[in-house]
Simulated assay, not measured.
Amino acid sequence: MTMILWGRLNSHNVKKVAWLAIEAGIAHERRDIGGAFGFTDAYLALNPNRLIPTIEDDGFVLWESNAILRYLAARYVPALWPADPQARALGDRWMDWQFTFADAQRDAFLNLVRRPPAERDQAAIERSAVATGRLMAIVDEELARRPWLSGEDFGIGDIPMGVYAHTWFSLPIERPDRPHVAAWYERLKARPGYAETVMIPLT
C-alpha cells in the first residue's frame, strides 16, 4: 500500500520525511497542503494542529516530523535507528537539538527567503547568522569525532540537521569555517533522495 505524505516540499519538516521515504525505498505519494495550498477540512481531521507533515500509512495516521522519522525507520529500515539504547540516544539527541538550531536560523531564513528586500530586518539577519555559526561549532566538534550525527553510520539522527544544514549553506550570510560540517554536508549530498527533496531552491 502506498503511504501518503501530506505537506508542501518547501517545508523543512516535510523535507525530512520525504528524504527518508526515498532513502528507505518506501512507496509513497506526496500531496501538497499548507502554506499557499491552505488546509482542507479533511486534512484538519487528520491533523488538527494546522501544521505539516502528516502521513497515512496503511490506515495509520501520524503527525510531528521527528515522530514520523522514528516510526518509518522502526517499521521499514531499523538499521537507521539502532536497537541499542545508547546508540539510538546519540542520534535522538540531535533530532531534538535541531529545534534549537531552527529557532536560531528562523530570522535569517524568514528575512532572506520569505520577505522582500525592503521589509528585511538586517540586524535580525546578522544576529541569526552569528547564532547559527556558534551552534554549528557544536555540530563541528561532534563530527570531528565520528562521521555521522547518528554515530559511525548514517541514521535518522542526521536527517533533521541535514535539512537545516543545506539551508545554512544556501543562505547569503557570513558563515564561519566549519570543516567537519562541510565534509558531512558533502557526504549527505551523495545520499539517496537528498538532492531531490532537500537541495531544492529555498522558498
Rank of each mutant, 00 (worst) to 15 (best):
W97A: 11
Q98W: 06
Q98M: 08
Q98A: 02
Q98C: 09
Q98Y: 10
F99T: 07
F99V: 10
T100F: 07
T100P: 05
F101V: 11
F101R: 01
A102C: 03
A102V: 11
A102E: 12
D103T: 12
D103I: 12
A104D: 04
A104E: 02
A104P: 01
A104K: 14
Q105G: 01
Q105W: 09
Q105L: 15
Q105E: 07
D107F: 13
A108R: 09
A108V: 11
A108W: 08
F109C: 02
F109L: 11
F109K: 05
L110Q: 13
L110F: 15
L110S: 04
L110R: 12
L110D: 10
L110A: 06
N111M: 07
N111W: 05
L112R: 07
L112I: 04
V113S: 02
R114Q: 08
R114D: 00
R114A: 12
R115A: 14
R115H: 09
P116W: 02
P116E: 06
P116K: 05
P117V: 07
P117S: 03
P117R: 03
A118L: 03
E119C: 13
E119K: 12
E119D: 15
R120L: 03
R120W: 04
R120C: 05
R120E: 06
R120D: 04
D121F: 13
D121V: 07
D121I: 06
D121Q: 07
Q122F: 09
Q122W: 10
Q122P: 12
A123E: 09
A123V: 05
A123I: 04
A123Y: 04
A123F: 01
A124W: 10
A124G: 10
A124Y: 11
I125N: 05
E126W: 09
E126D: 14
R127G: 15
R127L: 13
S128F: 01
S128E: 00
S128D: 00
S128K: 00
S128A: 03
S128C: 00
S128R: 05
S128G: 03
S128N: 00
A129K: 01
V130S: 01
V130N: 03
V130Y: 02
A131G: 07
A131T: 05
A131E: 04
T132M: 15
G133M: 09
G133Q: 06
R134M: 08
M136D: 02
A137K: 07
A137L: 06
I138P: 00
I138M: 01
I138F: 11
I138D: 04
V139D: 01
V139N: 00
V139R: 05
V139M: 14
D140A: 02
D140K: 07
E141W: 06
E141H: 13
E141N: 05
E142G: 00
E142A: 15
L143W: 07
L143P: 00
A144Q: 02
A144T: 06
A144M: 02
A144E: 14
R145Q: 12
R146M: 11
P147N: 02
P147L: 11
P147S: 08
P147Y: 12
W148R: 13
W148V: 10
W148F: 15
W148P: 10
L149N: 12
L149F: 15
L149P: 15
S150F: 10
S150A: 15
S150G: 15
G151V: 11
G151N: 11
G151R: 08
E152L: 14
E152H: 14
E152C: 07
D153L: 15
D153F: 14
D153N: 13
